[in-house]
Design a protein around this nucleic acid. Structure first.
Length: 768
DNA sequence: GTTTAGGCTTCG
């Protein structure tokens, strides 16, 4: 009997069309002082190799029979047993046994992937049936499995002991209401209850008698799965458990409890209140999106949220230092009117620290307090308006008070997103008014283009549909903010001059912008990661192998790099599409991009395979490198489902790895002038349409970089006089932004404008 | 095979 330590696909440089497999096994039967010889290669051919690949995971125990013993041709390279086992022919047979997961030996094996039934590859049958005790039939002093509809719950809170504690009350057809207390040190092991009416299934809870009634407390081997309680909703188990049992009968139980609960009116008709329906003095639950947050003091944190509805009452304004705000410091006036400032206190502050702008939240037992109240840390003149509604999440957990992050796919969040979608995008360089104007029908399009095309001296043209007359820069500066304007101007100067300084990485989730990490730093990260590329256990869906490292020069020694491939892709002969590469330098990784469509650098960390620090690119695709947002990503090596996916690209990979993909953006400041004034305008969102190349291309291609340089040289010839500079027809968006000191100031952004061509003749100064 | 909590509004 052998245990699999590594399962390797055909050598990626070999012909992957042939169906054979190489296994590295540990033979327990051989008691042998030579460590090298305790591992032996088993070679599988044909259908056996294919079936085996589908059935096996690392750590499985296999029994092989009907093999022939041959000389291992790779003994010098892999230093394993000098012989190998050849599994071919009719007698060859290999059995796969899955060892039960060590954490929970009583639960049935995890079934993450359907086993492939085969005469040669078989598994022991898994039979475990759970029985559930009705809540009316509980007896003291027993350990049971139960189902129930949640009628009360508290989000997990820190107990005085070592664990988090969840408190809930459940009921079922017996109408008994049973209190349950769950202690677990890990938050993810707690029930994921979002609202009253959710259905929980708990395994291994013990009954206790307390205060004249039976209560349930989790005991060894406890696990819980939660379901939405709405009749007709998908029966989708909410659990972080990798291994749980779920069959048709469970599905039926959930559906029966749902319809029973609906008939009993166990679930309140209104579970959460939109901001538009909030009543002063009332307690309510709010489903919302976090836009920004700021610590106020040690006992209080401000959460700025919205749900796309407008509260009819004047809301509390809280002034905080812009430098402590996480997320945008200001919003357009339209959006500002929809934002609720929530002050969360005491025990909720710690939880609020984990929240990220963009998160979808449910805040339980929020209080709407009318009148004025003091905000800690601020003087009364700063903090409050008279006659407003303040939202407080008081300290404590009474009445289930707390905050929960809801997954984006939950039905309530889908609905919230639809409401929010009705409002225009908004960020520090954008303005909601702009989108109203974007909605203008395009009947004026002909005029605008005709006007531009008649003038051969124009180096840019507007491609917007705004029917407005151009204004001078001095007129523009006197105009209202929050609108778009058309101007004709020349480029006086621009910054930065170095393209790599203009290229940034932008996170659309938290709206942060950062510089692209320089090569030296990235190379260092690769080097550090390669030092730790010790033994590690890759997840079972990966197959491990080795490829030759690219050589620095022809004379240097050939070195091998460890790669991991998705077993699914291997089985589909798609081995060139994605590799997880370990221990390579930045330079080696770059050289390998010609051979593999997607390269994900990985490292060994504490015996596990993980991604590199997010300061390094998480993905190499040809010349393109992709980065993830450190703030918004929750990176983890997860299986990529590529079945039916024709092109594996950065979006799919980022999603699978829990990475919030950063976009390449170009950010430039143009100083433009006309005879009346000068003005600084940013080119950012519409840089792609302006230059005709995407920032992503610019980051990866010399040609695209040259294109930008040529454009800038023709708009602003080095050493040239003002008279030689072409005129630009620009569409400018004027909005308000906040500088570092909290001062509002105008911000102009170039939009809907495309560079056309350098003018061929000398131009006369243009009348405004 | 040990503890924690055992709902029940609020300092702000």
């Amino acid at each position: 009997m052998t245990e699999i330590i590594t399962c390797m696909p055909p050598h990626p440089h070999l012909n992957v069309g042939s169906s054979f497999f190489v296994l590295f096994c540990v033979c327990f039967a051989e008691e042998d002082s030579q460590a090298d010889a305790s591992s032996i290669n088993v070679v599988l051919m044909g259908t056996l190799a294919k079936d085996f690949n589908q059935a096996v995971n690392q750590g499985d125990v296999v029994v092989a029979s009907g093999f022939t013993v041959g000389k291992s041709p790779t003994v010098h390279k892999d230093k394993l047993h000098p012989c190998n086992l050849l599994m071919s022919g009719d007698n060859a047979c290999i059995y796969v046994f899955r060892l039960p997961p060590p954490r929970d030996p009583t639960s049935p094996p995890a079934v993450k992937r359907g086993p492939a039934p085969s005469t040669e590859v078989s598994r022991p049958p898994k039979t475990q049936k759970y029985t559930y005790v009705g809540l009316g039939d509980l007896k003291t002093g027993s350990v049971v499995n139960v189902y129930g509809v949640v009628v009360f719950f508290k989000q997990p809170f820190k107990s005085r002991g070592t664990d988090f504690c969840s408190s809930l009350k459940i009921t079922d057809q017996s109408n008994q209401k049973i209190g349950c207390t769950i202690f677990c040190d890990k938050l993810e092991d707690h029930p994921k209850i979002f609202k009253i009416g959710d259905i929980v299934r708990m395994h291994r809870v013990k009954t206790q008698f307390f205060n004249d009634s039976i209560t349930l407390v989790n005991t060894f081997g406890f696990s819980v799965v939660t379901f939405d309680g709405a009749v007709g909703a998908n029966v989708e188990p909410r659990t972080s458990s990798l291994s749980f049992h779920f069959d048709r009968e469970d599905c039926r139980t959930v559906e029966e409890l749902r319809s029973w609960a609906a008939r009993q009116a166990v679930i309140p008709s209104v579970s959460t209140t939109p901001l538009s329906a909030v009543q002063p003095k009332a307690y309510f639950d709010l489903t919302c999106q976090l836009l920004a947050k700021a610590p106020i003091d040690t006992t209080c944190t401000l959460l700025r949220v919205w749900d796309g509805t407008r509260c009819p009452h004047t809301l509390l304004k809280v002034i905080v230092e812009p430098n402590v705000m996480v997320g945008p410091t200001s919003f357009s006036i339209d959006r500002e009117n929809l934002i609720a400032n929530i002050l969360v206190y005491d025990n909720h502050v710690e939880f609020a620290q984990q929240l990220k702008p963009g998160d979808f939240l449910r805040i339980y037992n929020l209080r709407a307090i009318p009148g004025s109240s003091k905000v800690p840390g601020l003087t009364s003149s700063q903090s409050v308006e008279v006659d407003h509604l303040a939202f407080h999440l008081h300290g404590g957990t009474a009445f289930g008070r707390g905050i929960r992050v809801l997954p984006e796919n939950s039905p309530d969040i889908q609905e919230l997103k639809r409401t929010i979608k009705a409002f225009p995008e908004d960020d520090e360089l954008n303005d909601s008014t702009l989108l109203e104007i974007w909605g203008t029908p395009p009947e004026s399009l002909g005029d605008v283009t005709a006007e531009s095309s008649t003038d051969s001296l124009r180096a840019s043209e507007r491609n917007c549909t705004h029917d407005i007359e151009p204004v001078t820069l001095s007129e523009l500066k006197r105009s209202n903010l929050g609108r778009v304007h058309h101007v004709r101007a020349q480029l006086r100067s621009y910054k930065p001059h170095r393209l790599h300084q203009a290229l940034k990485l932008y996170c659309s989730k938290c709206t942060s912008m950062q510089d692209i990490p320089d090569d030296e730093l990235v190379a260092h990260l690769f080097l550090e990661a390669s030092k730790e590329s010790g033994p590690c256990s890759p997840p079972p869906w990966l197959l491990s192998g080795q490829i030759d490292a690219p050589r620095d020069n022809p004379g240097s020694l050939k070195q091998a790099l460890t790669v991991h491939l998705s077993s699914q892709l291997v089985s589909e002969n798609r081995t060139k599409e994605l590799i997880f590469l370990m221990g390579s330098t930045l330079e080696e990784t770059r050289q390998l991009v010609s051979g593999y469509q997607n390269i994900i650098p990985v490292r060994s960390s504490g015996g596990h395979l993980t991604l590199l620090d997010l300061s390094a690119p998480f993905l190499f695709r040809g010349r393109r490198k992709y980065y993830g947002c450190r703030r918004c990503s929750e990176p983890a090596l997860r299986e990529l489902c590529a079945e039916g996916v024709e092109l594996i690209d950065e979006t799919i990979i980022a999603k699978a790895l829990g990475i919030q993909l950063l976009q390449y953006v170009l950010l430039m400041a143009f100083e433009v002038q006309d005879p009346t004034d000068t003005l600084e305008a940013f080119l950012w969102r519409d840089a792609k349409s302006f230059f005709g190349v995407s920032p992503e291309e610019v980051a990866a291609s010399q040609e695209a970089q040259n294109c930008i340089h040529q454009t800038m040289d023709s708009l602003c010839p080095p050493g040239g006089s003002t008279g030689e500079r072409p005129w630009l027809d620009l569409c400018l968006m004027a909005s308000r932004t906040e500088d570092g000191g909290g001062q509002k100031q105008p911000c102009y952004q170039i939009c809907h404008t495309a560079f056309t061509k350098p003018p061929s003749t000398h131009s006369d100064p243009e009348p405004a």
